[in-house]
Design a binder for these strands. Structure first.
Length: 210
DNA sequence: TATTCGATGTGCT
DNA sequence: GCACATCGAATAC
């Protein structure tokens, strides 16, 4: 049985690897957010990789700025950015210091404190829509600007733990959602048939990943 | 059910 | 000034 209170953060070595490997291995892991005196948690079911050196969709493509600087830190840091005037998106930095890579956490399946997540999200049609999108996930787990730069390898206000109950989920990959560049890369990964994954036409244009 | 469109504000050129 | 790793309501069919 999954025990959230005793769950240990994944170590630096997990994050300091190839971005695509980390991106798919994050599937099934548990995102934990300590906030409002509660332990919110959700199983990661959908991710996207963004790789600085060749990927025009990455915020770190050919540039180091005030916004993306944490992407150049070592793997295991949190990169949170504000988008479309309303929303936050949560990323995990991957690889070694100086590389500029990250994995966007696009969707997760609520595990604990689901009632709190419902309150944070406001009106939603079903439980499947609480966190099936990067900005929805941030709303449901109270992730915003002050999480920028947080160390996910420490048991702080946000971290990610392993999940013995879901060690080898069946994974599909597709193009990434919402881009105007880098559409050719199949850098989106998600758990097959999981109802908490974002609904999108790309779900039908997939490749089987191993 | 599928597609379009407006809200919103910040970072970057 | 403009683009933007989105969302959800409104519209079209």
């Amino acid at each position: 049985m999954l025990n959230i209170k005793s769950a240990k953060p994944l170590p630096v070595e997990f994050y300091e690897r190839d971005t695509l490997v980390v991106s798919r291995e994050l599937l099934g892991k548990i995102l934990i957010r300590i906030t409002m005196g509660r332990i919110l948690s959700a199983k990661i079911v959908e991710t996207e990789a963004y790789i600085g050196d060749h990927d025009p969709a990455s915020h770190s493509f050919n540039k180091y700025t005030e916004r993306n600087k944490v992407m150049y830190d070592r793997g295991g840091k949190a990169y949170v950015y504000f988008i479309y005037g309303n929303y936050y998106c949560f990323n995990v930095v991957t690889g070694k210091k100086g590389e500029g890579n990250a994995v966007l956490i696009r969707a997760a399946e609520p595990v604990t404190e689901i009632d709190i997540m419902k309150k944070l999200r406001g009106k939603t049609r079903s439980i499947y829509e609480l966190s099936n999108g990067p900005a929805k996930l941030c709303m449901a787990m109270n992730i915003e600007r002050k999480i920028y730069g947080a160390d996910l390898t420490k048991k702080g206000e946000v971290y990610i733990s392993g999940n013995e109950e879901d060690m080898n989920p069946e994974i599909l990959c597709s193009r990434r959602i919402g881009l105007s560049a880098g559409e050719e890369y199949f850098y989106r990964f998600f758990i097959k048939d999981n109802p908490y994954v974002t609904k999108h036409k790309f779900n039908k244009e997939v490749k089987i990943h191993k």
